[in-house]
Design a protein around this nucleic acid. Sequence first.
DNA 1: TCAGGAAAGTGAATGGTGTAAACCGTAAAC
DNA 2: GTTTACGGTTTACACCATTCACTTTCCTGA
Lengths: 287, 287
Amino acid sequence: MLVKQSSSSDRSPVPAATRRPPAAPEASPEPTAPSPAAGRRERQREATFTEIVASSRALLAEGAELSLRAVAARMGMTAPALYRYVASYQELVDLVAFEIDKAATEEFIAAADAYPADDHAARLCASSTAFRQWALREPREFSLAFANPIADSSCARRDLITVTTSAMHFTDLMRAIWEERRFPIPRLEELPPSVRESVLDPLIPAKVEGLADDDRGLLWIYMQGWTRLYGVVALEVVGHLDPRIIESGEMFVAALMNFLPVLGLEDERERLEAVLRAGLRPVPPQV
Amino acid sequence: MLVKQSSSSDRSPVPAATRRPPAAPEASPEPTAPSPAAGRRERQREATFTEIVASSRALLAEGAELSLRAVAARMGMTAPALYRYVASYQELVDLVAFEIDKAATEEFIAAADAYPADDHAARLCASSTAFRQWALREPREFSLAFANPIADSSCARRDLITVTTSAMHFTDLMRAIWEERRFPIPRLEELPPSVRESVLDPLIPAKVEGLADDDRGLLWIYMQGWTRLYGVVALEVVGHLDPRIIESGEMFVAALMNFLPVLGLEDERERLEAVLRAGLRPVPPQV
DNA sequence: TCAGGAAAGTGAATGGTGTAAACCGTAAAC
DNA sequence: GTTTACGGTTTACACCATTCACTTTCCTGA
C-alpha cells in the first residue's frame, strides 16, 4: 500500500493540534493505565488517543487501507474529529508507525527468549529472523514503520524515531555479544568524522548508557549490521528479488552468515545457521 | 510520496485495455522513431503512449504527485481517456517505473564512462555511486522504480521487471571484473537448491548469454552485492539512518568497501575508495 | 465510393480520500 | 453561575481512480 507523502515541507500553520508528547515511555504494563494524578479530562483524552492507534492497527491488520475516515468510522466518530488529536494524516501514520515498531519488537524479543539468556549470539539470530518473518508476513506494517520516508516529516516524527524500540533491542543484543567476546571494533580516531559525531551523540540511539566513549565504535559496527539486515529484508518485502530465493530465505541466511565474522562468531557458523533456519519455518501464508 | 497499492489480487475483469507488449526493446536511438512498417494508426497510438510516460516523468520531476488526472491534463486530455492506454493507475506506475529505470541506467553508464573502458572495477564503483546519488537526488523516482512492491501486480509488471535495465548494466560490469580477475565464485553444487535454480534460469536477469552454466555462481555473488548496495541506498533514501552519516556518505563507502574482497579487489582499496568519494561530491541540493 | 465498425476521446456520475470552516453542546475553570 | 474551551458534527472543497454511456473520427472491406 504505502503512504501518501506530503511534498510541501511546511504544514500546519494552524494551531497544530494542541499536542502533548504522545505518551512518554509510560512503562506501566496495563494499556489502560492512566497517569496517576491526571485530570479526569486528560485521562479521557489519553484513552481516545490510544483508541485511535488501536483502531488504526486493527484496520490495517485486517488488510484495509489506513485512512482518517476509516479510523474515525471504526470508533463511531467522524473524520474531522480526529483533527483534535492529530494534526494531519501523516502524523497519524507516524504515530501508528511508532506503535507498530513497539509491538513488533515484542515479537523479536519473544523469539530471542526461545534461547538461553546468556546465548547472545543465538538470541541475535533469532531476533533477526523474527524481524524478517514479521516483515514478510506484514509487509504493510513494515513499510509503514521502516520504509516510510522521514525527510522533513513533522518534528513529531523526528522525536519518535529517536526512540525506536527495535533499534534498542538489537543494539542491546549486539552489545551483549561484544562484552562477551570482545570482537574488534574501530577506535574513535579511526572513524570518519561524521561517524564519530554520530556514535558519540546518537540520534537513532541505542542503549548506550553503559558504553564508554572509547567503545562507541561498536555502534558503527551495529549500524553496518543493521544496514545489511535491512537490505535483505527490504528487498524481499518489496519483491525485487527472485521469488524462489525469497521463498527459501537463502539470501537472508547468506547475508547474516556473511556478517558473523565481524562479530567474531565464525566458530559458531553451523550452530547459528541452524538457529536462523529454525526461525524460517513459518513461511508467510498469503501475500 | 510513494504509491497506492491495490490490495486485491485480481483486477481488470474488463478487456484489460487492449495492450500490446509496451514497446519491444526497440533499440532505435531516436525516441520518436516509429516502427518501420506500421499502420498510421499504430504510429499515432505509439506516440501517445510515449507521451504518457513522458508527461508522467515530467510531472514527478517537478515534484508533483503522479496521478491519472494530472497526466491527462498535462497532455490536454481527460482522465478516462488514459484508460485506452493503461488498464489502471497501477499499470501506469509500472510503466513509468520501467522508463525511470531505463533513464537512470543511462546516468549510471555515463558515470562509468568517466573511466577507461578496461578499468572495470572503477567503472563499477562509479556506477554504484551514481546509483546512490541519483536515488538521493530523486527519492520519488527511486521509490517508484525500486521500492514499489511487486507482489501480485499485474503480469505486465512481472514481464517488465524481468528486463530491468539497470540490473543488466551492473551484472555486466561485474562479469567483466570476474573475467579479468577470476575471483572465486561458488560452484553450482555448493549453492542451495533454490539459488541454483535461480541462477540457471534467472527471472531477474542479467546478461548471461555468454556465461557457462558452471560459472553461474557469479550471479549469486552479484545478487549479494546488489542486496548490500540496495540496503544502504534504500536506508539512506528513506532516512532511517543518522542524517550526518547520510550526508557524508560514509555508510555507503563502508558498505562498498566491505564488498571489495569478495570481488578480489582488496589490493585496490585506496584507488577505488577515491573513485567512490569522487562521485559523492554533488550532494542532493534540496530534500 | 460508401457503409460499417472500431478506436479515441468526452462528460457525467460513483464512491473514495484529506482537510478547512462554521457551528454547537457540554464539561471544566474561575 | 457565567465563561471558556474542548470534543464533536455538518457541510463543503478539492482532489483521486474508475465506470458507463455517448459522440466523433478515421480506417477498412465490400
